[in-house]
């Protein structure tokens, strides 16, 4: 479903930074792919390109056979909404809103009606084990709870690909395990998972491990 050919991302500047260099990567529907590599290797750059948060400098990206370079920004926004769910290391919750309002946010942009939105957000919140905290303000949550809210938000829209950038990087191993258990559940329901991690144990949860170094995929790029 995801096919990257000779993908390059160069950040202009002096000197320019080649964050991703000629990456080839195939990912099939339903796979769980772990991405590992040292800091600065280009892992986040790769994930942002896959999630249509960024555009490559050269090379091609086929998403279900469609070259995304041909798509306008509105279509890209629609695809971000329909295809991808994001979970970031820094949670990225909107402070001073409640848990359920945060989970609803993706549904707002997916055009779900107000009533359905609430029901689906509550359901997704319950599915990550936070049923009791739906109306809590997010700053009052623990790190593990925040990351589960972020996960609920990514799952609520029924996205097909879950993109995680070090989702457990800020969590201790116990709370990290809880979050990973929820990811596992989603994966078993058929969700494609692409997860950046520094933790080799976590990486081994995936079907395949992609190794990166200095902007290059050095191992695990083929399907």
């Amino acid at each position: 479903m995801i096919e990257l050919r000779h993908l390059r991302r160069i950040y202009p500047g002096r000197p320019e930074v080649v964050a991703l260099d000629s990456a080839d990567l195939m990912i099939s529907e339903g796979e769980w792919v772990s991405i590992v590599g040292p800091s600065g290797a280009g892992k986040s750059t790769l994930l942002n390109l896959i999630g249509l948060l960024d555009s490559p400098s050269s090379g091609s990206y086929l998403l279900e056979g469609v070259d995304v370079a041909t798509l306008g920004h509105n279509r890209r926004a629609e695809l971000r909404s329909e295809m991808f769910g994001f979970v970031f290391q820094a949670f990225h919750l909107v402070g001073s809103r409640t848990v359920v309002e945060n989970v609803e946010l993706g549904l707002v942009y997916a055009g779900v009606s107000r009533r359905d939105r609430r029901a689906r957000a509550v359901e997704a919140t319950a599915s990550v084990g936070l049923a009791e905290r739906v109306d809590a303000r997010t700053p009052t949550l623990s790190g593990g709870e925040k990351q589960r809210v972020a996960l609920a938000r990514a799952l609520a829209t029924n996205a097909r690909v879950l993109l995680c950038d070090e989702p457990t990087g800020n969590l201790d191993s116990e709370t990290g395990a809880k979050v990973l258990a929820q990811v596992s559940k989603a994966h078993h329901r058929g969700m494609t998972v692409i997860m950046i991690t520094h933790n080799h144990e976590v990486a081994r949860l995936g079907d395949r491990i992609v190794h990166m170094r200095s902007g290059r995929i050095v191992e695990g790029g083929g399907s």
């Binding site: 509105n74 926004a77 971000r80 909404s81 994001f86 990225h92 909107v94 993706g106 942009y109």
Partner: peptide
């Protein structure tokens, strides 16, 4: 800015 980035990541269009 991070909040607006998040909204875009969640599927917000530019006009939103």
């Amino acid at each position: 800015t991070p909040e607006m980035g998040l909204r875009l990541a969640l599927g917000a269009k530019r006009r939103h």
